[in-house]
Amino acid sequence: MSGTRRVAVVVGNPKPESRTLAAATYVARELTGQDPDLVVDLAVLGTALLDWTDPTVAGLVEEVGDADLVVVASPTYKATYTGLLKLFLDRFATDGLSGVAVPLMLGAGSAHALAPELTLRPVLTEIGAIVVTPGLYVLDAAHDDPTAYVAWLDRVRPAVRHLHPTGANA
């Protein structure tokens, strides 16, 4: 897809079609004005994530690694991202992500609001991503409320627009 900006979403919720998935695709659309080109709902991969020779997982790692913008999302479990997401991110070399990454986490209460910054941002940086925006933490109960995202989106759109100059909202 030469010349086309690719947008990916990776979701580490162990439940398929989760609120985390809905939130991540919403954020990707709002940042770029387009639906993501690739959505990786890790829950549907099951035990394939444990098989380092699995060609499907290897292909997804390559596609995500080549994306220009990746929204990486997880529910908050024990103040950090899920083991499911960890299994996937462990597949990436230190230069495995070549684009901009946006850390997004959902949680039940505000006590873990720094989890995207303290746990997810460092691993995304370690695997090569450019993390130019603050991480986003959304309460589970507000995952489908656009007002839960407005202030953060207004703050980060200029940076994303600069690095990913496509889309109506970008």
Rank of each mutant, 00 (worst) to 15 (best):
A58V: 02
L60V: 02
D54S: 01
D51H: 04
L49N: 03
D90S: 08
E63A: 15
T80K: 12
V100L: 06
D54L: 03
D66K: 14
V71F: 09
G96N: 06
V72R: 12
F92S: 01
L87Q: 11
T80N: 09
P75A: 06
T80W: 12
V102D: 03
E62D: 15
T82M: 07
G59C: 05
A58L: 10
F92M: 04
V64E: 01
T94C: 06
T82N: 11
D66V: 04
D68Q: 08
S98L: 14
A58P: 03
T56S: 11
D66P: 05
L84V: 01
A101F: 10
T47V: 14
D66H: 13
G96H: 07
V61S: 04
L87A: 14
F88G: 00
D66L: 14
S98R: 15
P103C: 07
L85E: 02
S98C: 12
S98E: 15
L89V: 06
L87K: 07
T80Y: 13
G59H: 06
Y81K: 03
S98M: 11
Y77T: 00
E63P: 04
L84E: 03
F88D: 00
T47L: 11
P75R: 05
D95S: 15
D54Q: 03
L60W: 05
G99W: 05
P103I: 01
L84K: 04
K78F: 13
L89Q: 08
L89I: 08
L85P: 03
G59V: 01
S98Q: 15
V72C: 14
Y81E: 01
P103E: 03
Y77E: 03
K78P: 02
V71I: 06
D54F: 09
T76D: 09
D68I: 05
R91H: 15
R91L: 10
T56Q: 15
D54M: 04
V102I: 14
G83N: 02
A48N: 04
A48P: 02
A73M: 04
R91D: 08
T53E: 15
L49R: 01
K86V: 03
V64L: 03
K86G: 13
S74Y: 14
T94M: 13
L89F: 15
T82S: 15
E62M: 04
V64R: 00
Y81P: 01
G59I: 01
D66W: 11
A79H: 12
P103H: 12
G99S: 06
V71P: 08
